[in-house]
Design a protein around this nucleic acid. Structure first.
Lengths: 113, 113
DNA sequence: TATTATTATTACTACATTTAGAAAATATTG
DNA sequence: CAATATTTTCTAAATGTAGTAATAATAATA
């Protein structure tokens, strides 16, 4: 049993990186999560999550091109790896499996749901 | 926006509690997760997760009946609350939303996936 | 050169998870 | 009754993950 285990935030960061394809870097990942989920993301949290994900081999990073004509420190682009894709797929599948096992009565009977 | 946030393990415990309906307690929850996901669960980890979930209002607990004829300490049964159901539903929906936003090329082109 | 825009990084704090094992409650056996 | 076995909850310490606040690096432009 491989250990594809991801933290809650790590998984979201990985999903955002996949969505952004070749244009994922700090600011764009932050924006993507914030607009998709309406949830505030801090650079610090994002940075440490990306560090961990890279260490685990779920993303790889590369420094931005010198040709980019814009101010500021060079971007650091992130790409999801094959292992990263496995990890998000595994997380999704295992939870969907559990969802399907929930008795209908549990989801139906509560009026307040 | 912080309302519904669950840890990775917390979510799984909550799902198992929902699956087991009225018969969720330490041992049965542990077994459910282990058979569903093939992942080892320790009682200590489970206990602290349940404590947190109860504190957050996602489960409620009740002591087992005195009529149960069996050895051992009385069981402590857990039930998912309406808020708990909202939390797992929210977690599911937000991730599904992100999955749908992943460009097909990202999932298709990698042979090793 | 100084200022400003853009981005990455660090240091620190708080929360979540895991591990290893102790302790409680009950039944059964000698 | 006392001792032991069974079933379960609970504790404490260590590690892993996430969040906050401030700082540093790089480059364009005034």
């Amino acid at each position: 049993m491989k250990k594809y285990q991801l933290g809650e935030f790590e998984e979201i960061v990985l999903l955002a990186t996949a969505i952004l394809h070749r244009s994922a870097y700090g600011v764009s990942i932050k924006d993507e999560i914030e607009t998709q989920l309406g949830r505030e993301v801090s650079f610090g949290a994002l940075h440490t999550a990306l560090l961990r994900l890279e260490k685990k081999g779920y993303v790889r990073s590369s420094s931005g091109e010198a040709t980019e004509e814009r101010a500021g420190r060079p971007r650091k682009y992130y790409d999801i790896t094959a292992m990263g894709k496995k990890a998000i797929a595994y997380a999704r599948e295992s939870r969907e499996k559990m969802w399907k096992a929930i008795p209908k009565v549990v989801l139906k009977l509560s009026r307040d749901f």
